[in-house]
């Protein structure tokens, strides 16, 4: 079992003719993902990475039965690409693009609430169900099939933690990158809810970071609704207030909301152990299994 994607997922790559889109379409296919089409306005009829390109997502869905998209479209056009995915009623849209204007994302977020499509990101590394499907830019070789779910706001931090798990022989059901922007589609709570419902997921790693209050909400959800054990990690303990730490969403406000301390306390209160180091997170997971 897995959440959100598996080997039946049929993927259209929006922006497949660009450098990133082309490269990662190839990587996804090499991993075994069912990439069935690309969609790029004005490039219909071409073939890239061995799959046909259509002018619209709608045509790709009509012709190839795509049910998920991965978006590698530059920031200026990315919100439009997400709207296209939402309006085509795909099951899942994964937005890799970093740097989408926040007010565009507010509009996307409003539309998202009116559709059944799940959005991952933006500014995320994507999602992988080891051995079945990879939608995004995650390095497939560090993952292994297993029973631990992982949800994270950061790409490379995910890799670090997964590497610790895999090297101990602990595989993953699905790893989900939810993205480092202030306004994102799928939240920690959404992913945790799905892991809780997944019969094969026996433990979950949640990697949060400073900024916003999503981790605090997740902590409440875990305390009230989850039987599956969760171990946490929070990045940004040493971040000074008022400074944006790389991710647009990673900022401790001047008034002191969004601190690592607040998030760690909330998780501890919900019975979630928080590792001081990525290795300690893996230790906790090992204890759970």
């Amino acid at each position: 079992m897995s959440i959100f994607v598996d080997d039946d997922t049929r993927v259209v790559v929006q922006g497949i003719t660009g450098g990133e889109g082309k490269f990662h379409a190839g990587q996804m296919i090499d991993y075994g993902t069912n990439v069935v089409a690309g969609a790029v306005p004005g490039k219909g009829g071409q073939e890239v990475a061995g799959v046909p390109v259509y002018d619209t997502v709608d045509e790709a869905v009509e012709a190839e039965n795509a049910d998920a998209s991965v978006i590698f479209v530059p920031p200026a056009f990315a919100a439009d690409a997400v709207f296209e995915a939402l309006d085509t009623d795909l099951d899942l849209a994964v937005a890799i693009t970093e740097g989408i204007p926040t007010q565009d994302m507010a509009k996307v977020n409003k539309r998202l609430g009116e559709t059944d499509t799940r959005l991952l990101g933006p500014n995320c590394p994507g999602i992988i169900t080891p051995g079945e499907a990879k939608l995004g830019i995650l390095p497939g070789n560090i993952f292994a099939d297993g029973n631990v779910g992982l949800v994270s706001r950061s790409g490379t931090l995910t890799y670090q933690v997964v590497d610790s798990l895999t090297s101990r022989g602990i595989g993953q059901t699905t790893a989900v990158g939810i993205g480092g922007d202030p306004i994102i589609g799928t939240s920690f709570v959404d992913a945790l809810e799905a892991f809780e419902a997944d019969a094969e997921t026996e433990a979950v790693v949640m990697c949060g970071e400073i900024g916003g209050e999503d981790e605090e909400q997740a902590a409440r959800f875990i305390g009230e609704h989850m039987d599956t054990p969760v171990a946490g990690f929070i990045a940004g303990r040493t971040a000074p207030p008022g400074k944006r730490m790389g991710h647009a969403g990673a900022i401790v406000s001047g008034s002191g909301t969004g601190t690592a301390e607040s998030k760690i306390n909330a998780l501890n209160d919900a019975g979630v152990p928080v590792g001081d180091t990525p290795e300690e997170v893996a230790d906790h997971i090992e204890d759970f299994l």
């Binding site: 490379t156 303990r237 730490m245």
Partner: peptide, 17 residues
């Protein structure tokens, strides 16, 4: 020096730790 916001933040935190 590192790559990716979350991992760089983590590296800072570990230096402190």
């Amino acid at each position: 020096i590192g790559n990716g916001a979350g991992l760089v933040m983590t590296t800072l935190d570990l230096v402190d730790y």
